[in-house]
Design a protein around this nucleic acid. Sequence first.
DNA 1: TACAAATGTATGTTTTTACACTAAGTGTAG
DNA 2: CTACACTTAGTGTAAAAACATACATTTGTA
Lengths: 150, 150
Amino acid sequence: MGSIGEEIKQKEFANEYSKLLINVLYTASWLNGLQSSVFKEHKLTPQQYNSLRILRGQYPEAASVNLLKDRMIDKMSNVSRIIDKLKAKELVTRKPCKHDRRQVDIKITDKGLMLLEVIDEQMVDWEKNLHTISVKEAAATNALLDKWRS
Amino acid sequence: MGSIGEEIKQKEFANEYSKLLINVLYTASWLNGLQSSVFKEHKLTPQQYNSLRILRGQYPEAASVNLLKDRMIDKMSNVSRIIDKLKAKELVTRKPCKHDRRQVDIKITDKGLMLLEVIDEQMVDWEKNLHTISVKEAAATNALLDKWRS
DNA sequence: TACAAATGTATGTTTTTACACTAAGTGTAG
DNA sequence: CTACACTTAGTGTAAAAACATACATTTGTA
């Protein structure tokens, strides 16, 4: 039950590598769908959530647009506009950097931190959906994916 | 070294499951970026490519919009509009289904089949980038991801 | 100092996605 | 046959992504 071949009704793959390619893309789409349903009630996109998380990681320091871009899951994102959205919701502040006037200092607000706390709680429950494999198996998958990308 | 922690400069994860969540999303984004560079020269999006592949799988039969939607990697896609784009490039045809007039018969054209052949050749080379793990390891990862989603 | 190259961020434009909604066709129970 | 629920595909609209390009600032160098 639930093999990638059954999910997308594709009986054969050329080899395990192209199967893995599809499997990772499919699993990511599956995860995104699940996650989005959590974010939706807070009117956040996955990218906005990702940015907020990174900014919390820096807190109380500020982050530049480039730092954010480097750490984003999706490197193709347009960070400036994601920050625009978050700023409009007062979840972050954006002010010129003193040391380098090209840069901007982006910082998560208290409102942003509180929102993340609320989402954190929901995510703890939500993540239980992911406990279908053992911790050891999850660690093994992590190691394999890391090796695959190298 | 390319562990997910280093890639996105996140030192700690709550547990192996949330690490795996990030790892799969990150790996998918990485794959999408790599793939897009292949598709781009043919002016195809990953979704359009995915649709063409499915249609080739059905060939010489036609497919309905729903069949396509079911088999797409990304279930959220708006198939009607993807087909619009492919039809504009004459890669598929779309005609009313005789047996059920709600449905449409979508079929890949010779031009579409030829395009896929060209891309296939490029993909064979491209996929060698993915041979950083053994076939056994790839199969193990596939099995773990399948189990994780179940 | 002057000036070209590099860097950091923002913006314009086009394409794609997300989501809700519409319209047409089918199947079925009464 | 008719009414009604359901299926199938397409569309309108707002939001977001993709991609190239512009602009100000900083850096390196002659």
